[in-house]
Design a protein around this nucleic acid. Sequence first.
DNA 1: TTGAAAGCGTTACCAG
DNA 2: CTGGTAACGCTTTCAA
Lengths: 351, 351
Amino acid sequence: MSKAAKTDNNKDPKGRKRATSYDVAELAGVSQSAVSRVFQDGASASQAMRNRVMTAADTLGYRPNAIARGLITQRSNMVAVVISKLTNLYYPEVLVQLTQRFSEHDVRVLLFALEHEGDTGTVIEQMLQYRVDGIVTAAMFTPEQIKTINNARIPLVFYNRTPRDQLVSSVRCDQEEGERWLVDELVNAGHKTFGIVAGPPDSAVGIAREMGALNALAEMGVTDITTVSGDYGYETGRECFAQLVQKRGSPPDAIIAGNDVMAIGCIDAARENYGLKVPDDISIVGFDGVGPARYAAYDVTTVRQPVLRMTQSAASMLIERIENPELSPEKRAFSGRLIRGSSARLHSEDA
Amino acid sequence: MSKAAKTDNNKDPKGRKRATSYDVAELAGVSQSAVSRVFQDGASASQAMRNRVMTAADTLGYRPNAIARGLITQRSNMVAVVISKLTNLYYPEVLVQLTQRFSEHDVRVLLFALEHEGDTGTVIEQMLQYRVDGIVTAAMFTPEQIKTINNARIPLVFYNRTPRDQLVSSVRCDQEEGERWLVDELVNAGHKTFGIVAGPPDSAVGIAREMGALNALAEMGVTDITTVSGDYGYETGRECFAQLVQKRGSPPDAIIAGNDVMAIGCIDAARENYGLKVPDDISIVGFDGVGPARYAAYDVTTVRQPVLRMTQSAASMLIERIENPELSPEKRAFSGRLIRGSSARLHSEDA
DNA sequence: TTGAAAGCGTTACCAG
DNA sequence: CTGGTAACGCTTTCAA
């Protein structure tokens, strides 16, 4: 089909270009500036003008070119959102939320998805080339990268990552606090030996959680701790359970997993491969509060991240800094919420 | 090198603007066009030129402005990806995959997340204003919207949606075929009464699956069919199970759920609230093949979508059409893969 | 309120 | 291979 049928009366019989404000101006018999004003927010244009322009505009199918606007305005009205592929189950929600929050401010999201959290090098170049107005990242950046972004005067907000000794804005769930809650509950319920199923070594949150758990355990005087490490996935959770048992000869009293999905893997491994009852024989806790953690077969004891508040904060912090670049960095930490599921043997709440 | 010893290597003492190709040209003592060429792919520039320009460029922290480039090139190198919030668990993977595939072609993804699949109105305006080079959408568009996009000459690929009677490109998993497989297996294993837990009425895939199941059941001569409808979520799956039982007085032999998550909800409801054994007392099947479907406690019998191949196709189909707008629309359907989990009582494979 | 004209930072087209 | 100059489509003074 080389020749399109003539059935349509549309505005592109033969490779014609998209209508510009000049075309609209000409058809409406007004100046191009007038057209521009009509399509602006706080513009001054008579009603007559508005009408003429608008009718001309939509007979031509005209739409203001946001790219051209960005060039003159020095504002792309786009922000970059960086995520890494890990933590599968959790980020979709974050991403959708962020996009919607930004959308309320008429800001578009340019998405960058990393295979691994370390692949940040090239995406930074990309973001800078596209002149994004701001960046929120759920992947860690190096100090040099942060410096590059600062030099370019692009507001930056970290999501669930807080670079040490860096003057940057961040929004995070207080992982340490959450792990402390879990540890307290477990220790108070009499658990003495612990296994830790940590996240992947290149995950910033994973490290924060592991350290949080270890510190809390140390403070409680627990010394029998065995650590293994997974990739946040279900299968890895099952494998980690086996490794844990092998490493220490027998299952520990309790397992602290780096996220809910690995906790679920541990639960299945405990039940299927070792015939253990959860939580009677072993307690297993996770982190995140994702959907599957609430499935009846698991009902994972965990700490839920306040995703909504976190994404709202991230978006508004970024927008504020785009509109007022002088604002100084700010770090916000949100407490999670302890979910007393039935995957851990804890004292009853009113004990 | 003591040439014009500008002591400041620090390019923004006080609100200075980002370096442009002119700044680089000046510092390097060459023309601006030369700078432009050095940063282009198939450009002609001597090695000496390249060196001078490059050193000047990175002392200035210069990066070509992709916005300006887009204006003159008539190519934004951005594609829009539209997703709707539903089907939570499944799309994250799709989204990340798509983004990575596009990224390989040096194409950026502008993300649009809809609260409901019907909220497409405004996002289309946005996409057009940003002059995206192409669109892949996992939300349904109306015929008028499709026409608008066609008029704007923007290549469009539907993901898992195939508008009836519309000449558009699409990539999809063959939902009907998948449902037929499931129905065949169930009927052949002796199931006589069926419950259908359909997806939300505004979901295109949901409808395709429901119709697929109904048609297959009709062909197999099954008449005892009860249908209820949920929102793809876990809780809704549980509720739907209850509704189903109430509606027909007793549980059916088998339930066909619109996705895995609702299937899981049904399984839990069957076990917890009705004391039924799955699959001994009732068979429950899903669709998608998402992670949780493989958790040992559920092991859902389902049809897995070939996400990787689908996203690859979607990306390459779109890119091809961006580079060659004359290409005619193409619809690709991929077969899923039947996963014989243990949530349904089927005949053994070699029966 | 309206119009003319000057950019915004590139690429593209021509001469040299 | 290199440099000048004209777009690209818009916003933004500045006069009228």
